[in-house]
Design a protein around this nucleic acid. Structure first.
Length: 450
RNA sequence: GUCCCGGUAGCUCAGCUGGAUAGAGCAACGGUUUCCUAAACCGUAGGCCGCGUGUUCGAAUCACGCUCGGGACACCA
């Protein structure tokens, strides 16, 4: 997975958590694009690496194959497992085997990457399995029975024509009847299904499994497919299911404010795994959620590790840690019975002792929390939670700093147990809200910063 | 040519299911602080919210047109 994929994964996971938070029953699914020509290319690329592992000089990776060196170990594993039995056979004999092996290896890598990010899916659906189980035929027969499939000729696209454009009859779905601009092809010229056809099968299957609100997370470069997919879901569900598609824009990797040019030759290529190892999953997740999903995101490798106000992860975590620092002091002074299990105890505090303007500001911020989560969930926009948490942290830090100048505003006042407990209740509530927000993000709140 | 996304302070962006003087961070400027509970803090300035028309008691927010930037437009993943 690359960094852009990670954004989609984190966004989808956080959106799911957000919806769960407000009471929806959510299932996280991963759709595996393991059919189609691309997988054959993958298999051929692995075969090349396999021959390489057996000692062949393969030279440069030929045009049309995947050059990534992440395929080297895959080829090497095959060589170790199977020896040279596939080395000199014609392609049709080794292709299925290599395809299956390569897909498994890729999915292992993807699952690893997802696990590293803390993203867990309940359902993985293989496109190939759908095809082999006849689900595509079923789904399209369903559409056909409704008279929504026909053989027809599409108008060439306006504007720049593809070089190899040829006008010919195709198997088309009447997408235009369901809100799309034109009807859409279901079969390729070689007779196999288009992605659209298998995608219909997947969504239909999902609908039949009982889901009526479907949310897809795609890269923004697939934006052109939204209408047709929504049209298909509308058609296939008889209007009973709604598909919403969230497009995630690209992530710009920066270092010190400058675009970070990734180059394998210069050894500056950063995989998702590198990134997670370098800055931690919590930082990656939080930063990915600080922008609206359909806006481009800058990810600055230096800034995210900075301990300053302009690093939102640090700033929010720092507030949480500071609060626990105070709680630890309170416990040491025997004001608090327990560091964590103290909510009931603090709920009895004399909150009317909180009268300073900074304290009241903080209370107002806290009171907004339920409304903030609701509106973030309703808008499907987890980033609102990030902005809220940042603001809440800012209010807390402001109060803290005020206590520097005015000693009577500090949280723990010697000789005034009542006001100390009231303030502990206040900041404990702040920690509770920050903890809740971070847990929606899948970020672990820290109680101490080394 | 069509469709989608975007244009808000010098920079990066919130706000957009209409509501009071449009917000934050950075940068700039002016101060305070080197104390303590933990990596400073306070203040100032800075905006025809891309342009225009419309709807409305009221528009950054909604509609239409224009403009600029990005992306997508048979079969491709």
């Amino acid at each position: 997975m690359h960094i852009g994929h990670a954004r989609g994964a984190v966004f989808g996971d956080a959106l799911a958590a957000l919806l769960e938070w407000v009471g929806f029953d959510v299932t996280r699914e991963y759709y595996i694009n393991d059919a189609g020509a691309q997988v054959d290319v993958l298999a051929r690329s692995v075969h090349l690496r396999y021959r390489e592992a057996l000692g062949e000089a393969i030279g440069d990776i030929p045009e049309g194959l995947y050059p990534g060196d992440y395929l080297q170990p895959v080829g090497a594993n095959l060589a170790q497992q199977d020896g040279d039995k596939w080395q000199n056979l014609p392609e049709e004999q080794w292709l299925p085997h290599f395809r299956a092996f390569a897909i498994d290896a890729m999915m292992d890598m993807i699952r690893d990457d997802l696990a590293g990010l803390g993203v867990v899916h309940a359902v993985f659906t293989s496109e190939r399995a759908l095809v082999e189980a006849g689900k595509v035929d079923e789904g399209l027969a369903h559409l056909d029975a409704m008279g929504l499939i026909y053989e027809g000729v599409l108008e060439p696209p306006k504007g720049k024509l593809p070089d190899d454009w040829e006008s010919r009859p195709q198997t088309l779905f009447k997408a235009a009847e369901f809100g799309d601009d034109v009807d859409r092809p279901l079969k390729k010229s070689d007779g196999s299904w288009t992605y659209f056809a298998t995608d219909i099968a997947y969504h239909w299957d999902k609908y039949r499994r009982g889901f009526d609100t479907l949310i897809d997370v795609w890269g923004a470069d697939h934006g052109g497919y939204v209408k047709r997919m929504q049209a298909a879901v509308r058609a296939v569900s008889g209007g009973n299911a709604v598909l919403d598609v969230k497009l995630c824009q690209m992530v710009n990797l920066l270092k010190g404010g400058q675009p970070f040019r990734m180059s394998k030759r210069a050894g500056t290529f950063v995989t998702l795994r590198d990134l997670v190892e370098q800055v931690g999953k919590d930082v990656v997740r939080f930063i990915m959620l600080t922008r609206k999903n359909d806006a481009q995101l800058d990810f600055d490798l230096d800034k995210v590790l900075e301990q300053s106000r302009d690093n939102p992860v640090f700033y929010v975590q720092y507030a949480h840690a500071r609060i626990f620092s105070v709680l630890r002091h309170a416990q040491a002074q025997e004001l608090l019975p327990d560091l964590h299990d103290n909510l009931d105890f603090l709920s009895k505090a004399a909150l009317s002792r909180l009268t300073d303007s900074a304290e009241l500001t903080l209370i107002r911020m806290l009171a907004e929390w339920p409304r903030q989560v609701d509106s973030a969930a309703e808008a499907n926009e987890p980033h609102r939670v990030a902005f809220y948490l940042y603001e809440l942290a800012a209010c807390f830090h402001a109060l803290w700093n005020k206590g520097k100048d005015e000693a009577q505003l500090r949280f723990l006042i010697e000789g005034d147990r009542e006001v100390s407990l009231a303030r502990l209740a206040l900041i404990r509530a702040v920690a509770l809200v920050i903890g809740s927000g971070l847990s929606i993000f899948g970020v672990t709140p820290v109680e101490e910063m080394r």
